[in-house]
């Protein structure tokens, strides 16, 4: 519990991530689009190491009833965290699971303070 320095801020550049063991838990910190995010490295599905998965995009589709057309598009490139065990998808900025909207990755407060990246459990 408490505050944990996980890295010097300079070691975590835009697009980087790290996984640290904090008080017996694996916590991942991402710097993405200028913001820091800290999530438990534990997929809600079967406990896979989700935060070590690919950052990818995903397909989204809409149906236009009037035109009777489905439009399919590949979106959110780099924003979708995919568990390497079974492919469960999460939105990186919110931690929301794309297939189970009520499920989120457990998150922790994280900030840059005096040149350090600090996670609070």
């Amino acid at each position: 519990m408490g505050e944990h320095v996980v890295a010097a801020a300079s070691e975590l550049q835009e697009g980087d991530r790290l996984v640290a063991e904090l008080a017996g838990r694996e916590v991942a910190v991402f710097r993405f689009d200028g913001e820091l995010y800290a999530y438990l490295n534990w997929c809600a599905h079967q406990g896979g190491p989700v935060c070590e998965g690919a950052l990818t995009g995903t397909y989204e589709a809409t149906y236009d009833r009037e035109a009777n057309e489905v439009s399919l598009s590949w979106n959110r490139e780099g924003e979708v965290l995919m568990c390497p065990w079974h492919g469960w998808e999460y939105d990186l900025p919110s931690g929301e699971c794309l297939s189970q909207r009520s499920t989120r990755l457990p998150s922790y407060p994280v900030e840059e303070r005096n040149g350090d990246v600090v996670v609070t459990l």
Binding site: R25, E26, W42, G47, G48, P49
Partner: peptide, 8 residues
């Protein structure tokens, strides 16, 4: 493989 402690 993830290694959260006290899990099994």
């Amino acid at each position: 493989m993830s290694t959260q402690t006290n899990r099994s």
